[in-house]
Design a binder for these strands. Structure first.
Lengths: 338, 338
DNA sequence: CTGAAAGCGCTTACAG
DNA sequence: CTGAAAGCGCTTACAG
């Protein structure tokens, strides 16, 4: 191991307390000693060890973002907001990837128990209600993102509303039989999107046809993959009575669905969910989630929670915005092609 | 803060040494006391604090992956390999995001100095040679991924060869004027790809036309963005004498380039680099990097380096594989459309 | 199989 | 402005 505070103190001819003060920006150090210590530290490449600081201070100065393995694209954009906001504070961000094939709760508990951070951002981690309950006993600052449980602060998007908006748009544009590319129901956003989809159909005076709600066999990332989208769309296309249009639970599934349509040369209008970066370039009509803002807000909530553990729990829900591009306007495109 | 080793010891009526032994899987504990301690710990949600362990053991049991902010898609797939391999060992993986607009070296040094991990994986971090040099003094296990410096173990892909293969393919298929969508030259992979591209052109008996090597104004992620690709392709298309085909430094740029071609209804064959997941669904012909394998291998090297700091430095270079899909076969497609 | 004690590298009142 | 000392929550020889 390299230089410690003792080495620096000895070489500078001061006590370790003084060295410590310099690195903690304590003003009660003469400019001369400060400079001397700093220059010695620079030569030796010294900086207080995070672990020793953490132990002595009884905090880590680290915010842990807990994300599912092979974080989805959604996450990458949320992260940008988190980072930008966090850089205003004196916290480091560490990201801990949870493996999807293992017990999620156990992994989450492990991180909390080890005390890896002062606060935790759970991004797109979809546990059941009972599991969230059991995390409460750790009594540690946690913000849920892209998930909801009454026991924790959260920031998410109104998936029900978003799905409703998308589906209604599709119906209004002379499409009656709207299908849905769904994903694994364990994720709350997925259940909500199915919910909103169904409500839109009913409110338009149609009956929900469960056969029109399909998903692929690929269960990676809770079914939010290109592959799952491709598989699901193939099912739709091969039906005896294919749907007129389709709402996809995510953009990434829509990418696979697009491919399926191309493969079979059968196109139907589609609106998806997220508005990840590539969507603009692929012409995906989608329900835009304010991912960057979600990241910003989550950090603000977390800092507040850390500073005031007893504050009221708050939930922020954003309304997704309908972005119309090519994928939903296939009638037009069809005319051009034909 | 929650329960400590003292609380558990007191309740179990043993010394803290015994509690510690249980959590360190030391066999010298009677089964009865072990069970008792474990069950008390379970109730209290106790686990040794990472920071205290780290200090006492003088290691962290953490591998830090250092990645550029808004990690590119490439990184996500590399990470899968890292995680899978790391789960065989008793290390936790933490990811530290480096901000791109700030001094890269300073941030890297900060992480190393704080002693955040026992070993470090630098993924797609592109520093200059002098900077790598200055990291050596920390004398800490570091593996370079997607980058090369003689002073550190590294695992990367032969970008020169890959670019050469792609460009040669393009030339062979009756295209003479091949352009290149480049990125910021500070990244070694980018420089290598330009290099390979040029060599292929020369070896085919043509002259390199510098005007045919373009890049977009967007400098995010070293120019590896959809936007940068779109901008660059627009330049190409608007030339008086547009190229016959194009080699793109990355798939993500190719996504933007595809859009540019669509926008202007001017298509040219294109091969890119990476083979990220969406590429298959978008029909991108590309030079495949074995991203998962790169992750696996980097972890193996890092573990070896940790266990044997004095071992010879080794470099592994993978050969990218040409994957032909639609984007390079536009001649065929054109015939169908026309 | 178990405990007492030293030590890991820091921070932080307290005293001067 | 500076230092001596206690303490953070663990691990690990050492002794029994």
């Amino acid at each position: 191991m390299s230089a410690t505070i003792y080495d620096i103190a000895k070489e500078a001819g001061v006590s370790i307390a003084t060295v410590s003060r310099v690195f903690n920006n304590n003003k009660n150090v003469s400019d001369k000693t400060r400079q001397k210590i700093l220059s010695i530290a620079e030569v030796k490449g010294y900086h207080p060890r995070a672990f020793a600081q953490g132990l002595a201070r009884r905090n880590t100065n680290i915010i842990m973002a807990i994300v599912p393995v092979i974080s989805n694209y959604f996450f990458m954009e949320v992260l940008a907001g988190i980072q930008d906001k966090l850089s205003e504070y004196n916290y480091d961000l560490n990201i801990y990837n949870i493996k999807n094939n293992v017990d999620l709760l156990q992994q989450a508990e492990y991180v909390l128990r080890k005390g890896m951070g002062d606060g935790y951002l759970f991004i797109s981690i979809h546990l059941g209600e009972i599991f969230w309950e059991s995390l409460k006993r750790y009594d540690v600052p946690i913000i849920l993102m892209d998930e909801y449980d009454s026991g924790f602060d959260s920031v998410s998007v109104d998936s029900i509303e978003g799905a409703y908006t998308a589906t209604t748009y599709l119906i209004k544009h002379q499409n009656q039989r709207i299908a849905m590319l769904s994903a694994l129901p364990q994720a709350k956003p997925t259940r909500d999107r199915v919910h909103g989809y169904k409500r839109a159909i009913e409110d338009a005076g149609y009956l929900v046809d469960e056969d029109l709600i399909v998903r692929g066999e690929d269960t990676n990332r809770d079914g939010f993959t290109e592959k799952a989208g491709h598989q699901a769309m193939m099912k739709l296309i091969q039906m005896n009575n294919p749907p007129d249009a389709c709402f996809s639970a995510s953009d990434i599934q829509a990418v696979g669905a697009l491919k399926a349509m191309k493969d079979s040369n059968r196109y139907i209008p589609m609106i998806s969910f997220d508005d990840i970066q590539i969507s603009e370039y692929l012409g995906l009509s989608t329900m835009r989630q304010p991912m960057y803002e979600i990241g910003i807000l989550a950090v603000e909530k977390l800092i507040k929670r850390i500073n005031n553990p007893k504050a009221m729990i708050s939930h922020t829900v954003f309304s997704p915005e309908l972005i119309i591009r090519d994928s939903s306007e296939l009638n037009v495109r069809h005319q051009i092609i034909e």
